[in-house]
Design a protein around this nucleic acid. Structure first.
Lengths: 131, 131
DNA sequence: CGCCATTGTTTACAGCTGTAATCGCATCGT
DNA sequence: ACGATGCGATTACAGCTGTAAACAATGGCG
């Protein structure tokens, strides 16, 4: 039997550049370093070397796995995007709103960061949730 | 007439430690370095020296003003907390939700980061806004 | 008048981040 | 069998961040 890996709560933070690499792997995995570079290096303008460095760091942080495939590696996320998003969101809510998520929503609303469409969507969402 | 300083959109980022200092100044200002250290250093466990460094960096980033008062300075925020919160929130929404604020709310809801009370509050908020 | 406390400034230094270049080894084509 | 190529690992290095210590100037107290 396999040891149940706890749902990814890595202590080490994922940096901005690293996240771009994660996005590629969340979109499609497994990928080789070259493939990741193709996917992200394009818009980011990074060299293959840079992508390799980021991949190594992510492996070190246990955010991705490197499975040997012949002489190279196939990389796959260990950290799920939903978990990452959750951790980051929580961090922000804690840091800026004293942990009160409703305050965030209130702020977004007041700052007019919410379009009419956003408001409608949220309203619909709420109806769903309160049912 | 005074030149209208644009509502604080400093390019430089405020780091975590720096934010703690800002919080002190947002709570009460102006304050001397020693007073800030008293307010912040307590819970953070920072030395006065550390607080001084952070204040200098914040002045450098144009996030606070240092008004001379005899041989020392009185520090006050230049960046409003609401603006800071806005910038950080936007950054998160962009980075994690492709700029769609409603997605953030959806995520918080799904992750059960929203309590029953939060939901009620948001609902009330929405009613206000749609009026 | 001299010394200590206070205050801002300068310097320090390790760890993280962005962004690579280089190295050494393996492999594939000829 | 040999050289070009591809790949991961190692090394590099500047800028930001956390966390201070050291220093210099000044002002208050005895």
């Amino acid at each position: 039997m396999t040891i149940p890996t706890d749902p990814a709560q890595l202590s080490e933070r994922i940096s901005g550049a690293e996240q771009a690499v994660m996005e590629a792997l969340w979109t499609r995995a497994p990928l080789t370093a070259a493939e990741v570079a193709d996917a992200v290096g394009e818009e980011q303008g990074w060299s293959l070397a840079t992508v390799k460095t980021l991949l190594s760091r992510l492996v070190g942080k246990n955010a991705i796995a490197a499975e040997p495939d012949g002489r190279r590696f196939l990389y796959s996320p260990l950290l799920a995007r939903a978990d990452f998003v959750g951790q980051e969101s929580r961090r922000l809510v804690d840091r800026l709103f004293g942990g009160r998520a409703a305050s965030l929503v209130a702020h977004l609303a007041e700052a007019e960061a919410l379009t009419e469409r956003d408001l409608a969507e949220i309203e619909t969402l709420l109806k769903e949730l309160r049912k």
